[in-house]
Nucleic acid binder design. Structure first.
Length: 1157
RNA sequence: GCCGGGGUGGUGGAACGGUAUACACGAAGGACUUAAAAUCCUUUGCCGAAAGGCUUGCGGGUUCGAUUCCCGCCCCCGGCACCA
């Protein structure tokens, strides 16, 4: 028999398999379908690495079993070809990225074929192929053209998917633009991807990077946050993948609370054409403002049906008292009057609010009489000078005032625009809360702990939030505040994330906010421990119940007010109330604590005693400790707030409700004095370490003082019972959150709210090698989406691949591509020059395998390429989706996996795909470390190249070893010795084929074992327990090793079980033993039940829990029969001799356990 | 800090609450060989001559029986990280 020579046999079979096309999937086959997806690779220049091999080998083996089990398996592969390394390579060499990609994918394909991965090569796709990215761009356009509108809020966060007209500028779109920071290298003058920023420095020149604000495309993934969490229930993802996604999305339910800023404002409300102070929202607004103690003047202007400008302005200036604290609000024509009034004033006012105002008589519907009688010239500079700030309120449902008026006024007056949907068109509802919000300066905070609202000591605003811009006139230390804000902005990511950096902040002097629950005035701070990107960018600080606020309050010496106290036990009505103190006595010499041991009840507790009248906790504790233990101590400080506990006091036989104050004490004497006899009988003093004490102390409520001191955590952040909280005192946190929020809501100061950690997806990249974003900017028409029929928008050839020094992508320099005519007005227009991130193409590639590829191209070509592939291949999508099993890396859990679920859900809403989730099951493999146990990297020189292994040992050894290396989902280190072990195993298999004889009977033991292995090997492979799968193959082979001959049938079964791991060897030996056709066409073995039921079984016998022997009994033997055999067993008989058997436990086929006395 | 996952021989690792250490590596001894490699055979958790005892990070608990379940602690890995 010749030697096992993998080189020869592997090449031989790869050719045969490819010729017979054994791994292509058939649409609509009658067999059950199985879609097995493996993450497609980024075709880098360095080729396939062992990490790829891990996933591919595992999925390939599983897939091979599935095929043999009779499934119609779709197991496709492709290339995630857009990305930075290729672009960087192009910058260095000047080679075209598309060409580089072609070379790389050719190399990858060849490598994959030598490893016999049974991919369906007819369906190969490439994300950088224009025929592919045509559809990536198409999906982007759909994002642009659609949005979710919640009719009640207009927030775009929930509700129904609607199509949005191109000229609609207010409905929130799923793809939208926003000013977002990019990583900017000031020295290279280029924008950097996150991966190019290493520890806060530019990868190329190592100078620190900064943030630069730039308009970027965003995808509103947050609109799907809830569904991305909830629909995880429908999937079989690994539990850790689910939790990681849930944590990443980070949903928290809480309350938005408005803290009104105290101001001396008085309000002047000016009505519009044909209006009066009794119209519209005016009476409601007036009532709201007056309820809050503001003075309101709402005059009726002269000749309201036929108004003349000078007359009305004169009237206001003469008759109405206007001062520096005045806020003038004009609605519609009243806004015009308001501007004219401000223009005429000799002093500034606090604020000007223009609701549906205009500066040109250009109405959408009909002409008004005043259009001619009014004077339409304004001195905008003067108006601007005469007002502290200006707000322009613009309703998207305004029938009269053109939308653009807002932009114009905003530009001229530097006004802040508030876009909203009014309760009635032209802001004419009787309630218009948005108008009210514009009148009163408020800071809105988000909290999950509304129950602690009474403990709010101050509020904190994030430095980046624009709350402060409205407040400038009131801030007396403005200069310092602005300096703080500027410094905070300069801080790099590096500094911001520095470990446990000390909190800093600055108080806005002259500004006070009003706590809406009790009308208390609180300070307002700006501090960078508050994030502008989460919630409302402002928080209420409750130092007593939040660690961060506690730390901040300690540093700046701010009020710490306790409003929630821990509550232990069960509420017991009629319990006897008692105020106590408990002592945490720390002995520094040996770091031990004084604990009192109760002799009668075997309790451990700190020294505790009741407080007497007129005693402070500090005094009480000194007395108590001395009386109880004889130690003289000095009270140092109170450890946080009080603790309420209800319990049955066995020593006194009563229900007690105890309010306890823990106090830290210092030991004054080393030795105790004598204590009274009664005390001595009750308890003794013992010294313990903190850990011991925490373990020994009997009741949880007595541990709290120790925990606070040993963990240095004085802020009580848990739930409990409210104190010092007015009408809410005495109720529990959870109820209080509900009750306080309801009260806040009723008073119009806030509402329940939900927030997510998940941010919208920044979708613009300032790079060349990505999908161009199909958008056109026209000077006149604004943003115009490219016509779908003009897709794909192909990347132009460029000379240079470097980013431009303006922060734009290299495409911006290709004027013949960028500068085009507007498709609508034929005026000058520019293309968007940013490209999509590399996550875009991979967000739908599993759909592309179904719709694109060689065969599908033919179908499309027959139809002239005008088809929508989603419609064209609807039936195929229905047949194959969802992906049954998606295998990949753990590192993709929170980006790729989440992004593609988001895209899929959107396509589902568009009715382009039939399922709401793309992947039924997701598993992930661990990484392979180098032989030194370190992560493989070129710089460490511990990289294993698959090609080297294949050329030395063959692909089968590589495959089997990679499966055998360790648990699939855990990281494992590469081991050369282990690899050789697997090679030896395959050699022994090769030799054992010589033992095969036809027409012989195998020993029964072999048949029994073989059938057992069929069951467990199948189960292992199904569940990716690949290391034990290979181990079991070894066990079977070892068993064959020990035999002289083996039947063809049995060896054939073994080869079939082996074929997923070592397909070439299995096929070669299958041929050698004269098997029919290819082993790939064989049916996966099924266990023969007759070998699984045994006549005799071995039973372990335990005596008093210890193994004392093994007996063989009939598998159907009764307990009595087994016991009889056990008694007769000499070894066991020795153990039970002279003792009484009190209990017998018998588990058939497993164990008999005897308890003897 | 929070959320996951781990901790078993000299090493990688097996074990539905039921004979802990499968399988592999390494090591030792032996066979073949002039010799080595390769291959094959034997031994291999620790203590002990043996009987037997001890052993799954540490300390408790539940159970006839715990690597497995529960409580507390220590250490390692991964993710998130001032998310209010």
């Amino acid at each position: 028999m010749n030697k096992y020579d993998p080189k020869n046999i592997e090449k031989k079979w790869q050719v045969v398999w490819e010729k017979n096309n054994l791994s292509s999937a058939e649409d609509f086959a009658k067999k059950p379908k199985f879609y097995s997806l493996i993450e497609f690779p980024y075709p880098s220049g360095s080729g396939l690495h062992v990490g790829h091999c891990m996933g591919y080998t595992a999925s390939d083996a599983h897939t091979r079993m599935k095929r043999m089990q009779g499934y119609n398996v779709l197991f496709p592969i492709g290339w995630d070809a857009f990305g930075l390394p290729t672009e960087n390579y192009a910058i260095k060499t000047g080679k075209k990225p598309a060409l580089v990609t072609k070379e790389n994918t050719d190399f990858f394909r060849k490598q994959m074929k030598t490893l016999a991965y049974s991919f369906d090569w007819d369906r190969e796709i490439n994300t950088s192929d224009p025929e592919y990215y045509k559809w990536t761009q198409w999906i982007f356009l759909q994002f642009y053209k659609h949005g979710y509108v919640d009719p009640s809020t207009g927030s775009g966060q929930a509700g129904k998917l609607v199509e949005i007209a191109d000229d609609d500028r207010t409905t929130p779109r799923l793809a939208y633009q926003a000013e977002m920071p990019i990583n900017w290298c000031p020295s290279c003058k280029i924008g950097l991807a996150n991966e190019e920023v290493i520890a806060g420095r530019c990868e190329r020149c190592e100078s620190p990077t900064a943030k630069k604000m730039q308009k970027q495309w965003m995808l509103r993934i947050t609109a799907y946050a809830d569904r991305l969490i909830n629909d995880l229930d429908k999937t079989d993802y690994l539990e850790k993948i689910k939790t990681q996604q849930i944590n990443w999305i980070g949903k928290s339910k809480g309350t938005n609370i408005d803290f009104e800023l105290k101001q001396n404002a008085n309000f002047i409300i000016l009505h519009g054409f044909t209006g009066s102070p009794k119209d519209n929202f005016f009476p409601w607004l007036r009532a709201e403002l007056e309820r809050r103690g503001y003075k309101v003047q709402a005059p009726e202007l002269p000749e309201t049906n036929n108004p003349k400008i000078d007359e009305q302005v004169d009237f206001v200036v003469d008759k109405i008292k206007i001062d520096e604290n005045s806020v003038i609000l004009g609605h519609s024509l009243g806004a015009v009057v308001a501007m004219k009034v401000v223009e005429r004033l000799k002093h500034p006012i606090a604020k000007l609010i223009l609701a549906a105002g205009f500066i040109e008589p250009t109405f959408k519907d009909h002409k008004r009489p005043f259009e001619k009688t009014f004077d339409w010239k304004f001195d905008f500079e003067k108006i601007k000078k005469n007002t502290g700030s200006t707000i322009y309120l613009r309703a998207s449902n305004d029938y009269a005032v053109p939308f653009e008026q807002g932009d114009k006024i905003s530009n001229l007056l530097n006004a802040k625009i508030v876009d909203f949907v009014a309760n009635e068109e032209h802001i004419c509802g009787t309630h218009e809360p948005v108008v009210f919000d514009a009148c009163v300066d408020k800071v809105r905070v988000f909290t999950t702990r509304a129950d602690t609202l009474f403990g709010c000591a101050y509020i904190v605003i994030a430095p980046e939030s624009d709350y402060t811009s409205n407040l400038k006139s009131q801030i007396s230390n403005l200069e310092e505040v602005e300096k703080y804000i500027e410094n905070a902005g300069k801080k790099s990511d590096l500094e911001r994330t520095e470990l446990q950096k000390e909190k800093t902040g600055i108080r806005l002097e002259g500004v006070k906010a009003i706590n809406p629950i009790n009308n208390e005035e609180v300070d307002v701070w700006v501090a960078d421990y508050v994030l502008s990107t989460y919630g409302t960018g402002a928080v209420m600080a409750v130092p007593a119940h939040d660690e961060r606020d506690f730390e901040f309050a300690k540093k700046y010496n701010l009020l710490i007010k306790e409003v929630v106290i821990p509550f232990e036990g069960e509420e017991h009505k009629g319990a006897e109330f008692r105020k106590t103190v408990s002592a945490v006595v720390h002995r520094r010499s040996d770091d031990k604590y004084l604990i009192v041991k109760w002799k009668k009840f075997d309790w451990f507790a700190p020294s505790i005693g009741g407080m007497e009248k007129d005693e402070t906790p500090m005094q009480a504790v000194e007395r108590e400790v001395f009386e109880e233990t004889g130690y003289k101590v000095k009270a140092v400080e109170e450890l946080g707030g009080q603790i309420e506990s209800h319990f049955y006091a066995e020593n006194k036989q009563v229900w007690r409700a105890r309010i306890d104050q823990p106090v830290l004490c210092e030991l004054r004497d080393k030795t105790p004095r004598e204590v009274s006899k009664e005390e001595l009988e009750l308890h003794e003093a013992v010294w313990m370490t903190a850990n011991e004490a925490l373990q020994k102390i009997t009741h949880p409520y007595n541990k709290i003082g120790f925990e606070r001191y040993t963990k240095k955590n004085y802020a009580y952040i848990g739930y409990g019972k409210l104190v010092n909280s007015g009408e809410f005192s005495g109720i529990y946190s959870k109820e209080a959150i509900e009750a306080i929020t309801k009260k806040i809501k009723k008073d119009g100061n806030g509402d329940f709210a939900v927030n997510y950690k998940l941010r919208d997806w920044v979708f613009s990249r300032q790079h060349y090698w990505g999908e161009p974003i199909p958008i056109i900017y026209c000077e006149k028409c604004g943003i115009i989406p490219l016509n779908e029929s003009d897709l794909p928008l192909e990347l132009p050839d460029v000379k240079k691949y470097e980013p431009s020094n303006t922060g734009e992508s290299p495409l911006a320099a290709v004027s013949e591509w960028v500068d085009i005519k507007c498709p609508r007005c034929s005026g000058p227009a520019r293309r968007e020059t940013d490209t999509m991130p590399n996550w875009a193409g991979s967000s739908w590639y599993y759909l592309a395998y179904i719709m694109l590829g060689k065969e599908k191209e033919k179908i499309k070509k027959q139809k002239n390429g005008t088809v929508n592939v989603f419609d064209e291949f609807k039936k195929e999508l229905e047949y194959w989706l969802p992906v049954d099993l998606y295998n990949g890396g753990m590192e993709h859990t929170t980006l790729h996996l989440l992004y593609s679920r988001f895209w899929h859900k959107f396509l589902y809403d568009l009715k382009e795909v039939p399922t709401s989730e793309p992947y039924q099951k997701r598993i992930a493999h661990g990484i392979i470390l180098g032989p030194d146990g370190q992560k493989m990297s070129k710089s460490r020189g511990n990289v294993i190249i698959p090609d080297d292994i294949v050329s030395t040992y063959g692909a089968d050894t590589m495959r089997a070893y990679i499966m055998f290396i360790g648990p699939y989902d855990q990281e494992s280190a590469w081991s050369v010795a282990g690899l050789q072990g697997v090679f030896r195993f395959l050699n022994r298999v090769w030799k054992n084929v010589g033992k095969v004889k036809e027409g012989i009977d195998d020993p029964k033991d072999l048949l029994v074992d073989l059938n057992k292995y069929i069951v467990s090997v199948t189960d292992d492979l199904e569940n990716f327990r690949l290391n034990t799968y290979v181990a079991k193959l070894m066990e079977i082979n070892n068993e064959i090793d020990s035999l002289e001959t083996v039947s063809k049938d049995s060896f054939g079964i073994f080869l079939k079980l082996l074929s997923p791991a070592a397909p070439h060897l299995a096929e070669e030996l299958w041929e050698k033993i004269g098997g029919s056709e290819s082993i790939l066409d064989q049916t996966w073995p099924k266990a023969d039940a007759k070998y699984l039921i045994l006549d005799y079984v071995k039973i372990a016998v335990q005596v008093n829990g210890k193994l004392r022997g093994v007996v063989e009994v009939g598998s159907k033997a009764t307990q009595e029969e087994v016991l009889d055999i056990v008694r007769k067993n000499s070894v066991i008989a020795n153990w039970i001799k002279g003792r009484e058997i009190v209990k017998v436990i018998y588990r058939p086929e497993k164990v008999m356990s005897l308890v003897i006395k």
